[in-house]
Design a protein around this nucleic acid. Structure first.
Length: 433
RNA sequence: GACCCCUUCGUUCAGCGGUUAGGACUCUAGGUUUUCAUCCUAGCAACACGGGUUCGAUUCCCGUAGGGGUCGCCA
């Protein structure tokens, strides 16, 4: 039997990271088993389910590469079916109407639990059991005539012929009810897999309040979809060996629900950043160049003729797209900003300006002005003057780039060119001495 | 409160009766005879606690503690 999994979010404008990881696991499982991955939009909450919210959801799916099979099912189109099923359950004695007196809410339809214990084998948590005494009847149709989540969710899973329901841990209690419903409806019961929650930095489950946990935010922060996907896949799961940076195909091949952990996991942004850096380094030079050019263009900067050399120098140092502008601006313009702390720390002593003056003099006479020659000249200067590299190089770097860290200085100087370097050194001296 | 779930380094993933308890991220120290956000090497750092079972428990069982989830008209 071919497997069919689904991602069934309610489009509230933002999909948070825990939900998206559920989507990732559903996708991986479907792809691993050669089955289908379906999307269902649970848009019955009319107030929150706006067209924009749905658009945001679809864009997030697309961005992460979570391609789905078949046309998405919009739950709101199925209300009649849901209601009809409630009537059927009523007719078959699996549900009853009740007018909860005193509240003035009117009559609702309530599902009658079978009165027997229910047990199922969760694909990640193992056997789970609940005794009849611990399960109460529950509302299927509100007194205002609308179906509740349980009814809609189960019926749509039946409609979409879902074989594995892979969802968050917070649904385990619902599962007992859902199983009772499948049986009452005469439908085959799917398998269930409950994923542990992803918790925030405080160790608490992500909530709407954790504004930094939306998928779109990772995109705007400059993370790559592939890196985020890779990181998310590793939250609660591992291939069983020590691989971490993996291609999608590798993840698909190795994925299995039985090796998913059942304890909650916390996101570590630092590791995500590291992983993103791994993806940057793995980029083809052309891709990296294109990304840099596009990013710099957003602040109307164009990279000069030494672009290739600059990209080669920077690719291993950039960890995330948003690093590009701060790290590369000085290559594109003389109008770079000085890191105040760096200036304070390294350009405070008066004698440093004399040193810079001397360096400028030496560099001026250099021919050719390539990295090797520059490097040698700087070394000679330090040695002959009985100076320390640490006292000379950092100020020079700040002078030409405004920053206290960056790639090897000699190639940087060579790329900037003699005239530019001299101008920058003199500008710096004039400004801070 | 009731029911259910979870518990290995700061984080994450291994380990599934006998291991010097491993990898990764972070951090620290050294190195790459200059910076450094890269790279290399080394290092710090964990089995929540208490009982069992067993020749032997991180591993199996039972408790305790802590955390989380759910509890008839949210999804």
């Amino acid at each position: 039997m071919t497997t069919r999994t689904r991602f069934a979010p309610s489009p509230t404008g933002h999909v948070h990271i825990g939900n998206m990881r559920a989507a990732v696991f559903n996708w991986l499982y479907a792809r691993h088993t050669g089955g289908q991955f379906l999307l269902r939009v649970e848009d019955t909450d009319r107030e929150r389910s706006t067209p924009e919210a749905i658009k945001t959801l679809l864009e997030a799916m697309d961005w992460l590469g979570l391609n789905y099979d078949e046309t998405p099912l919009y739950q709101s189109t199925r209300m009649n079916v849901h209601l009809a099923a409630a009537e059927q359950l009523l007719a078959s004695g699996h549900a009853y109407k009740e007018d909860k007196g005193g509240t003035g809410q009117g009559e609702c339809i309530i599902f009658k639990m079978p009165g027997t214990d229910i047990e199922f084998t969760d694909l990640v948590k193992g056997t789970l059991r609940k005794s009849a005494a611990d399960m109460a009847d529950f509302v299927l149709v509100r007194s205002n005539g609308t179906p509740v989540f349980h009814l809609a969710n189960v019926l749509d899973d039946i409609e979409q012929k879902i074989t594995q329901v892979i969802r968050g841990d917070d649904h385990v209690e619902n599962t007992f009810r859902h199983i009772a419903m499948y049986k009452a409806l005469g439908a085959p019961v799917p398998q269930f897999a409950h994923l542990p929650m992803i918790v925030n930095a405080q160790g608490k489950p992500y909530s709407k309040r954790d504004g930094d946990a939306f998928v779109g935010d990772f995109q705007t922060k400059g993370f790559f979809a592939d890196a985020l996907f890779n990181y998310l896949a590793l939250l609660g799961w591992s291939p069983g060996d020590e691989r971490e940076v993996m291609t999608r195909d590798e993840m698909i091949a190795a994925f299995d629900l039985s090796t998913v952990r059942s304890s909650p996991a916390q996101m570590d942004l630092r590791k995500l950043l590291w992983m993103n850096g791994e993806y940057v380094r793995a980029m083809r030079p052309v891709e990296f160049a294109t990304m840099c050019r596009e990013e710099l263009r957003t602040i109307r900067l164009e990279i000069g003729e030494n672009a290739a050399a600059i990209f080669a120098l920077m690719q291993e140092r950039i960890k995330i797209r948003t690093d590009i502008i701060p790290a590369m601006t000085f290559f594109c313009t003389d109008d770079y900003e000085y890191d105040e702390k760096a200036v304070e720390k390294k350009l405070s002593k008066p004698e440093i300006f004399q040193t810079l003056e001397k360096i400028a003099g030496i560099l001026e006479g250099l021919q050719p002005f390539d990295a090797e020659t520059v490097n040698k000249a700087l070394h000679d200067f330090v040695e002959q003057g009985g100076l320390k590299f640490g006292d000379v190089m950092p100020p020079l770097r700040i002078a030409v780039s405004g920053q206290q860290s960056g790639p090897d200085l000699a190639p940087v100087l060579a790329i900037l060119g003699k005239d530019d370097v001299l101008a920058r050194i003199r500008k710096t001296i004039a400004r801070f001495s």
